[in-house]
């Protein structure tokens, strides 16, 4: 491990002109290659924290640093999302007009991967997910588990250093949940990636070497 890849300092996030405070002074440091789970009950602020770590949103105050550089000023958020972070969402968020293999290529369009490279790379990633026979299917023709595997392949498209998963098993049955977690932890180990998983399931939360609990917008443990 080579020092913190992400640091969070006195992070606040509020909505509705300050009436709702989702995060209230969070401090956190995550090392490169670490596997961390964040849990908490509904509305605790765990997804908000993940969105801020992933550069999807900007904090009301405080800072998020990527390799010591401030997100949103020293590091452009668009570039950060396209080159350094991959997202896996509970609702999969596949693009309905695109086939599985095209969905995996969508982030590559932002990162300007070489034209001939895109299809080949997407196919390789889908094969790694055991989806070689379903590459040409539209998302509507895939099962929930298959959709999430396509979403994981898509998250890896630009070879990010950080993988952020927001309730990745929330829409899956127990068998598929176990399979998805197996894939995510396998990727983290084989690639040495930083994996941050937000979950409300205790079993998944305990699977990580480091488990952070959020309560009312603050880190509880």
């Amino acid at each position: 491990m080579s020092g913190p890849i992400l640091e969070v300092r006195n992070l606040f996030k509020s909505y509705d002109d300050g009436r709702i405070e989702a995060l209230r002074g969070v401090d956190l440091s995550i090392d490169a290659g670490e596997f961390v789970t964040i849990s908490g009950h509904s509305g605790s602020g765990k997804s908000t924290l993940l969105h801020l770590l992933g550069g999807l949103d900007i904090p009301s105050s405080g800072s998020v640093l990527f390799r010591g550089a401030l997100l949103g000023s020293a590091v452009n958020l668009d570039t950060y999302r396209s080159d350094h972070v991959g997202f896996v969402f509970q609702a999969f968020y596949l693009l309905p007009t695109l086939r599985a293999i095209e969905n995996v290529q969508a982030p590559m369009l932002a990162a300007r991967h070489h034209d001939g490279d895109r299809g080949q790379r997407a196919a390789t990633l889908l094969r790694e997910m055991g989806m070689e026979h379903r590459m040409d299917q539209q998302p509507s023709k895939l099962s929930a588990g298959e959709r999430q595997r396509v979403a994981i392949a898509r998250a890896l498209a630009n070879d990010p250093e950080i993988l952020l998963a927001d309730e990745p098993t929330g829409n899956l049955d127990s068998t598929n949940s176990a399979r998805i977690m197996e894939i995510l932890t396998g990727i983290q180990k084989s690639r040495g990636m930083t994996l941050i998983v937000v979950t409300h399931e205790d079993e998944i939360a305990r699977a990580a070497p480091r488990h952070i609990r959020i309560h009312d917008g603050r880190i509880a443990s």
């Binding site: 992933g54 999302r81 396209s82 997202f87 968020y93 693009l95 932002a110």
Partner: peptide, 16 residues
């Protein structure tokens, strides 16, 4: 709107 959000989450820049 949601698809545009997905594209932005995947790293598509504003101009893209």
């Amino acid at each position: 709107t949601r698809e545009i959000g997905i594209l932005r989450a995947l790293g598509w820049k504003q101009w893209q």
